[in-house]
Design a protein around this nucleic acid. Sequence first.
DNA 1: ACTGTACCCTGTAGGC
DNA 2: TGCCTACAGGGTACAG
Length: 293
Amino acid sequence: MPELPEVETVRRGLAPVLVGKRVASLEARRPDLRFPFPDNFAKRVAGQSVVGLERRAKYLIASLSGGEDLVMHLGMTGRFTIMHEGQADTPGHYAYGVGPDPTHDHVVFHLSGGTRVVYNDPRRFGFMVMMARAERLQHPLFRELGAEPLGEELTADYLAAKAMSRKVNLKAFLMDQHVIAGLGNIYVSEALFQAGLSPNRAARSLADRRGAPTDRAIRLVPAIRDVLERAIEAGGSTLRDYRHADGRRGEFQERFGVYDRAGSACHTAGCGGEIRRAVHSGRATFYCPRCQR
DNA sequence: ACTGTACCCTGTAGGC
DNA sequence: TGCCTACAGGGTACAG
C-alpha cells in the first residue's frame, strides 16, 4: 500500500501528536506482525518521549529519548490512526469510515494526556523493530538502501552507474529498493509515464557504453521527483486501505496518468492511445504504448 | 552476483 | 446466495 508519498503523509500527520510527547504505555495485542515484535517491546517504549519522527524510504523512524529508534514499516495495509482524548470507541466518534477494528488493531501507543495512536494492519505485512540510534545506518534494513528519491543523491549519473551492469527492465530496476528507496508499484508506473519511457526497456539503456547517463536517465530523475512531490501534495493515493493518520483519504489517485487505467484513453494531448496493463516480476504495470518508448 | 518465482496474510471483487 | 479464483500499495527466501 504505502509508498513514499503515503508514508510521508502519515509522518506529517503523526508528528504533531507524537514528537515531544511521552508514551505512557504501549500495548501490543499479538506477539508479531510480519516479524516478532522486539524483545520486551512494551517495556522498552513505555515511559519514553518521542524526540523525532523521520522517514527514510518507506520506513517511519521514531527516535526515543532513551537512545533507541523504533522503526516501523506499513507493509501493504498498515495504517496509523490518531484517537484523541475523549474519543470513545464508539462508531459515531470515528470519522471518515474509520471504525474500531479489534481483530486488526495490533498496537496501541497510549500517550500521556490521553491521546492514542493505533496501528491497524489486516495483512500484517508491516513490522516494528528497535535498534540503537547510533547503529541505525549500519543495520541491515538501512545499510544497502538506495538513494532517497527526493534527496540530492538521486542524479542521472547515479542512475546510470547503477543501471550499467543490470539486465532487468526499467520497471524492475526502479522497484528495486537498493537503487531508489521509496518507489513502489504505483509511482514507478507513473514516473515512467511522465518520463515517456517504456517499462519494458532495458535498464542499461539509462547509460551509454562509457557509463554516462543518456537523455533517458536525465529526464527520468525530474519525472520521479515531480510525481512524488505532486503525490505528497495530494496526501498520497488511496486505492482501498490507505488513510492519513486522521482518517482522510489521499487524493492522488484522481490524478493518475496510467495506474489502474487499463483500457482507458491516454491523457496526453494528441496521443489517443489506450493504457495497457502488463505484468513485470509478478506485479501489474500500467503504461501507454504510444507515449512510452 | 543477478534474476525470476513462490510465498507470507487477509479481504474483496468478479465469474459461474 | 455461495464457492472459487485472482488480485492488492510490501519485502524476503530461495532456486537456477
